[in-house]
Design a protein around this nucleic acid. Sequence first.
DNA 1: GTCTATAAGAAGATAGAC
DNA 2: GTCTATCTTCTTATAGAC
Lengths: 206, 206
Amino acid sequence: MDTKQRILEEALTLFSEKGYANVYVGDIAARVGIKAPSLYKHYKSKQAIFNAILAKMDERFMDQAKALNINGANPIPDAEIYKHMSEEKLLELGKSLFLYYLHDDYTQKIRKMLTIEQFKDKRLSDVYMEMYVDEPLRYQSALLGLVTAGGMLTTDNVDIMTLHFYSPIYMLLTMCDRDPSREPEALKMLEAHIKQFDKLYGRKDK
Amino acid sequence: MDTKQRILEEALTLFSEKGYANVYVGDIAARVGIKAPSLYKHYKSKQAIFNAILAKMDERFMDQAKALNINGANPIPDAEIYKHMSEEKLLELGKSLFLYYLHDDYTQKIRKMLTIEQFKDKRLSDVYMEMYVDEPLRYQSALLGLVTAGGMLTTDNVDIMTLHFYSPIYMLLTMCDRDPSREPEALKMLEAHIKQFDKLYGRKDK
DNA sequence: GTCTATAAGAAGATAGAC
DNA sequence: GTCTATCTTCTTATAGAC
């Protein structure tokens, strides 16, 4: 049931694996369990399916952005927590971020699809950048700024500290997207990275 | 002249911009200044052109790897230099690495092509990883290891230090690949990153 | 809404003249 | 080696029955 929705799901799966041009409407239909012509009762073209995927993505992304900004510009509703940010808490933060990005089915497929299609359409590279570079940096910068204000991290440049925190996560993520078998290795590096990060930026007496 | 070579160049340009499936043999021929059927006197199929690009890439990459390893496993023939590694030298190193990767025409096109095609062929993602993740980390690790041995950097984990040095460069690179207009911004961040890196890892008295 | 049959057009590749 | 003409196959999309 809800064939219209299933079409979007199966199309996204295929687009993320092979790219738009290498997926045929018949492939999508087959995964849904119908024949190609039946697709056209739900969407008027292959491009319309792709557009619908992007529209849903935009919607989700905006909802998420809204949820993170409940109280206006500040991304963290409960700032008190971050005055007690320990190495373990940092580890948890980094790991959960990494594993969410890596394993969340929808997020992973969207990221792969945007990666494949990015150079064909500026709109897609813009979305990718916003989702995996600018927004994470903004959000984590605000978060780590609070931790710094709380005295648990020390720096005179929160943005660069955030870059130092996030960019290894980003790089390891692109590594695991390409080769999932390297996830254990990536997790080890991630852990070592964050411990080192805490040593470099953390309060010296804690 | 040398139509065979020009075909590879124009094909790489197109593949890197639009991806294999979205480039038609007629497009390649048009850029070379001939008609599609003439292509087939030089290569027996479109796939053969793609394979030839990869073969040339492998060749170049191996040559480069060899050049970096003149004296066996050690990547740096002249290690003395790195005992005098200053912040300015680090900046130069990081910037030149970044700008080479970003602007070298061939390297950039190969990287974009591999980025687009990576999920369709494990061989391609492997090459990408080797070129832009594993090899740079290995090489820089050896280099920064020498600097550390020389006393100009301090760490108990050279690999993580290298990750901290390189991953921001990598992330900024993927950013500029997607949106070249952000290069000035990226260069500013790169500079701030390396200065901060030197503060964090550099000899405290220098 | 799903199907079969089929139209319409694109794209890779070949034939054969020059 | 390059061209024009053409073949073949693949792919999107439509027509019309059920």
